[in-house]
Design a protein around this nucleic acid. Sequence first.
DNA 1: CGTACGTCGGTAAGCGCTTTCCCGGATTAC
DNA 2: GTAATCCGGGAAAGCGCTTACCGACGTACG
Lengths: 341, 341
Amino acid sequence: MATLADVARRAGVSPATASRIINGSPKPVTDALRERVLAAVEELQYVPNAHAQQLARSHRSAVGVIVHDVSDPYFSEITRGLQRVATEHGRLVIICNTYRDPDKELEYVELLRANQAAAIILAGSGYHDEQFTNTLDAKLRVYQSTGGHVAVIGRHEHSGHAVIPANESGGHLIGAELYGLGHTRIGVVAGPRRLTTTTDRLAGLRRAAREHGQKLTARQIVYADFDRSGGVTATATLLETHPEVTAIVALNDSMAIGVLAQLRSRNIDVPGQISVVGFDDMPIARDVTPALTTIRLPLADMGARAMTLALQPPEPLNTPQIEHVAAELVRRESSGPPAGR
Amino acid sequence: MATLADVARRAGVSPATASRIINGSPKPVTDALRERVLAAVEELQYVPNAHAQQLARSHRSAVGVIVHDVSDPYFSEITRGLQRVATEHGRLVIICNTYRDPDKELEYVELLRANQAAAIILAGSGYHDEQFTNTLDAKLRVYQSTGGHVAVIGRHEHSGHAVIPANESGGHLIGAELYGLGHTRIGVVAGPRRLTTTTDRLAGLRRAAREHGQKLTARQIVYADFDRSGGVTATATLLETHPEVTAIVALNDSMAIGVLAQLRSRNIDVPGQISVVGFDDMPIARDVTPALTTIRLPLADMGARAMTLALQPPEPLNTPQIEHVAAELVRRESSGPPAGR
DNA sequence: CGTACGTCGGTAAGCGCTTTCCCGGATTAC
DNA sequence: GTAATCCGGGAAAGCGCTTACCGACGTACG
């Protein structure tokens, strides 16, 4: 691997000069030398060692993103937004997948710190686990105390900038719609209960229930993995225990797709017999049949905003900024009034 | 940011000793010292500077992955496989999205080289652009000549290990199925023609046509972007110019979903009036209605295999290995015999 | 009891780069 | 003609770490 010294030698200049030319330093350099150096770079196919550079000039440049799983559309949309602004700022982004393992999250914060990331963006649900949350928070504070920026998406429990989706009010929107339509027997297919996203969305649903003089009991809620297969199995369970439901709320679209699959396999008409509502408005939501009624969250936009927050110069008053992003009900074909109304 | 020297000072040892303890070097160290150092690490919340480490020990550890777009399910599946293997080997993976911009691809190869990546994995279609291909190939060779490993997925035109999906034979499978079913007027909704994936798949389709005494003319093929909206617009075009088609082949599932959406909006029954076939078998393919007949490619597995190839010790004979992966027809509900048969 | 060796730590030389500081020569001003 | 001022270029320090290499001490051996 050619080094700067090699280039300098070949061009007959000092490493200092070569460095200045290659990095376009403000220091003026004669054109003759510039050409010689550039020619040497070309001949040697020289590429500066990024690690050496980063060590020498001590400002950080990369940014780290910690998500549950990029192959989940929810996160890939967010990531898309993150990437866009990062690229605009000329930043390299390091994507870390935790696959919902809290320990990995801790590890990755260390890793990103070790890699001198200028900012860490934490996306995805938080955990109902006080000890873990404290540990993570402590790590993040240490990171911040050494000049690192942090932004979280949908995790109110940590310090740093935050982009907070309206999970509670999204849940409320669904409840209002369904109870408003006249449904009274609603089943919920929820994600893992240790996730704050699950409980936040449920809280909104409960609030709507109360407002309509209804009640959402624990037995109407089935918890499962936050993905398609979780939706499939949870729906099966729900139909065993509560065959009378006229509507099923899935707490994210992936699960909703599982719900739809399960209902289809049982020849249950949607929305004729049972209405189905999802959450997130993933791109695919409009392409399933029936098209999914769901809650829209501007995923890519949330990513972009989080990255913008993380990249902005250290706030003058040192106050973390919090941006709330609204949820919106998208009515499609999977929901309607209960049968017999 | 605490440094090794800080830790050493606090523990009252030399940096060398501290380093050895922290990295678990084979060199024996007394337990007393070990404990003091570990305590200092804890108190200082010390994390080694990864760049400095990488500079000092001069073996590379990270691996780079260049894809078109992780938020595209095709690539997120592949990436999932890549990540799994990388993590098993304790490697950090740097994901780079080109958004189908060839220039970015070139840039990223440089960037990865600059970051001392141990391997570069290039996934996604190649381009019919000889100049670009040569430039990229040259860069890859330079990288390889300095000890870098490269593996490509589905791009036969470059040196290095390769995992090659059976695009041609997948296309052939589709053609055989459709012509076998009795279709004679087939429309094709294709990706950009500059992509080798597009032309490879088309080639298979053409071969099947010939075998059945049919012909696939240029006018039956509409080229568009390789995504849902490409599928939507291409279908519209196709229906204007060839309203008589009884089957539409989309060259990937994203486009197929667009095809389905367009047909639905025109109230054209699938497969009653028109059969639709996709390619890739993305997870969502079975959840659209009607469930999509498509060609299965073991995406995650392909990623895993590519990473395995890239990570294996330099091959003794210096011969790049090529692994072909088979395509398989998955019959679902979107295809059937032409109307009136 | 002296030599040889094995243990455990420290010293210091880099890894490849950036950047401050300095120096010699060419200008310019007086 | 001399002094003050630039200006382009190089020498060298240092970023934070790893790892030969060396040295001191203790033990076992002849």
